[in-house]
């Protein structure tokens, strides 16, 4: 039994796999009043007919995304992996988001980063953080763009709204997470526990301070 966790965005998901097959999944929308993610994890593992001892590997989304969500997901994954002595993997959140597109993965994934900034990813490049104003210059003219939250592109760059995949062409996050997990388990190297790190989570001011520091 293998487990995939993505709590990096507004949509969140857990998937339990047996080999490459999905045994159970949980999709939800982030809400402060939610039960702790561990309660969901316990429930989804039970629904999959598994127990903690069956865990063989775990993968968690490492961002970029929500400060709180990333810490929850990565800490849970690290704790599970360490406690059961199983391999621990991380996956890029925007690459997972890109797989929410029906058919082929989207070539560009954007996630709201707050303060008129977006986390931006395109195929073959690492994710970056861009001011909304620079988005028009950065977006390829023929991109298939997937955005969180859906409809975001229309509010950031109204002229390019047509590039965003409509909600009807999006699949549940758990479906994208399942594919990403299989790809990660098959082709990536597990991490050491002291390598676990969230991506791009500092607010710009903290990033600036870090660069300027002695």
């Amino acid at each position: 039994m293998r487990l995939a966790i993505d709590t990096s965005g507004v949509d969140q998901a857990l998937v339990v796999l047996d080999g490459r097959r999905q045994l159970a999944a949980d999709d939800w929308v982030r809400d402060r009043a939610d039960p702790p993610v561990l309660a969901r994890l316990d429930a989804v593992v039970k629904r999959a007919g598994g127990k903690p001892d069956d865990l063989e590997a775990v993968v968690a989304a490492r961002g970029p995304g929500s400060f709180t969500g990333l810490r929850i997901g990565l800490s849970l994954a690290a704790g599970l992996a360490y406690a059961r002595h199983i391999p621990l993997y991380v996956a890029d959140s925007l690459a997972i988001l890109a797989r929410r597109a029906s058919g082929d993965p989207a070539s560009v994934a954007l996630r709201d980063a707050g303060r008129r900034e977006v986390y931006a990813w395109r195929e073959g490049e690492p994710a970056r953080r861009l001011p909304v104003d620079e988005l028009a210059g950065w977006l390829p003219a023929t991109a298939r763009v997937i955005v969180e939250p859906a409809g975001g592109l229309a509010s950031w760059v109204p002229g390019l709204a047509h590039l965003e995949l409509p909600a009807s062409e999006r699949r549940p996050l758990s479906t994208a997470l399942l594919e990403s997990a299989i790809w990660t388990f098959d082709s990536q190297k597990p991490l050491r526990y002291d390598e676990v790190q969230a991506l791009y989570v500092q607010p710009a001011a903290a990033e600036e301070r870090r660069r300027m520091s002695p």
Partner: peptide, 10 residues
Amino acid sequence: NLGQAIAWAR
């Protein structure tokens, strides 16, 4: 989260 994950897993 890490503490509870360990507890749950064990």
